[in-house]
């Protein structure tokens, strides 16, 4: 990877998001849920979007799916997908793309599946809407095949069962089968393992990676857990308060993280190579208000390395230079950031 995104107009990525802004008018004021997001995603690649609740990661995925249409949310910027700006499409054009070109996997498969219809009914429906000419029996056969591919045993029988008859892990497998049934080019997985048992989480992530290789789909995986994206993602974008604060390859984010917030995420992660008695370090403070964000750097009230006098952390808004190969939204000079990471954050074995 060279720069975070190529220079103007030269992007040939599958998905190229430029200066995406999503705002919601509320009684208390304008909520800036996503505030100027720019990233690229190539075919077959995996992007991990990491951040805490309210950082704007789920809103971003919903904006890409066009799920904000018909609500009071305002979406600005551009979302290029295979050369077309999704924000400029007619509702009907976008609807046809949903599920066929861009599919989504949700966090809680129990509530994301309709309790009154069989799993098969719901997946066949997802397939038939984009393959109108396919006969019912052919669609059913395809769905059984799909259930088999996601590792559901005895799919001929399971296809006629209801979601409540599935275990949590099996439900998420069914959800994945539903998302991939049309072989979409982009899959957005919004916290796909958060609602699952720890033992099942790794299985689901492995499954996603295997299927990605088979189908060559691009994946955006949204999570608050850096560990989830550690193995999966090619690129990682860390979000804070609706903005990207650090972007780069997975290696860059793990082995040379430069933003104090990313450091905080790394240190709050349980690690096997740490001393057992060492406590996890939470990030102090609360997520920023999206209506009236802190002045200057949005992270400065919680930042352990802020330096208002010399750097102006509370007054100057740091930039996220998308032409950089490892952009970091921080006022601390790069050499100093590297030094802090090496001396204070990096653990001996990493």
């Amino acid at each position: 990877m060279s720069t975070w995104v190529p220079t103007e107009g030269t992007s040939e990525a599958l998905l190229s998001v430029r200066d995406l802004k999503v705002t919601f008018p509320t009684e208390d004021g304008l909520v800036k849920a996503v505030d100027g997001l720019t990233f690229d995603l190539n075919a077959g690649e995996t992007l991990g979007i990491v951040g805490e609740s309210g950082s704007g990661k789920s809103v971003t995925s919903q904006a890409i799916m066009g799920l904000h249409r018909g609500t009071r949310a305002k979406v600005e910027g551009s979302i290029g997908f295979e050369g077309r700006d999704l924000l400029k499409l007619e509702d009907e054009e976008l609807r046809v793309m949903r599920g066929r070109d861009i599919a989504m996997i949700f966090q809680d498969p129990l509530s994301a599946l309709h309790p009154y219809y069989t799993v098969g009914n719901q997946i066949v429906e997802a397939y038939k809407i984009h393959h109108g000419k396919t006969s019912k029996s052919a669609a059913r056969a395809h769905v059984i095949d799909m259930l088999e591919r996601v590792g559901i045993p005895n799919p001929q029988k399971r296809i006629d069962q209801y979601p409540h008859e599935f275990s949590g892990g099996m439900r998420q497998r069914a959800m994945i089968a539903m998302a991939l049934v049309n072989n979409p080019r982009l899959v957005i997985a919004d916290e796909p393992t958060t609602a699952l048992d720890v033992t099942v989480q790794a299985q689901i992530l492995d499954l996603l990676m295997d299927l990605q290789k088979e189908m060559n789909s691009a994946i955006i995986i949204i999570t608050h857990d850096l560990g989830v994206v550690a193995e999966m993602a090619d690129k990682i974008m860390v979000m804070y308060g609706g903005k990207a604060v650090e972007g780069g390859t997975a290696d860059q984010t793990f082995y040379s993280a430069e933003h104090p917030y990313t450091w905080g995420l790394l240190q709050s992660m349980p690690r096997i190579d740490r001393e057992r008695l060492e406590r996890l370090q939470p990030i102090p403070g609360n997520p920023p208000s999206l209506i009236s964000p802190p002045s200057g750097c949005a992270f400065h009230p919680r930042c352990a390395y802020r330096d208002d006098e010399n750097l102006g952390c509370s007054t100057i808004v740091p930039e996220f230079d998308v032409q950089d190969w490892h952009p970091v939204r921080c006022l601390i000079p790069a050499p100093k950031r590297k030094a802090i990471f090496d001396t204070e954050i990096r653990t001996p074995s990493s």
């Binding site: 046809v96 509530s111 994301a112 309709h114 309790p115 429906e125 809407i129 539903m178």
Partner: peptide, 14 residues
């Protein structure tokens, strides 16, 4: 407000 309606929408249903 149910999640399964968002799923239905994400599938591309009319």
């Amino acid at each position: 407000g149910e999640d399964y309606l968002r799923t239905a929408q994400a599938k591309g249903l009319k």
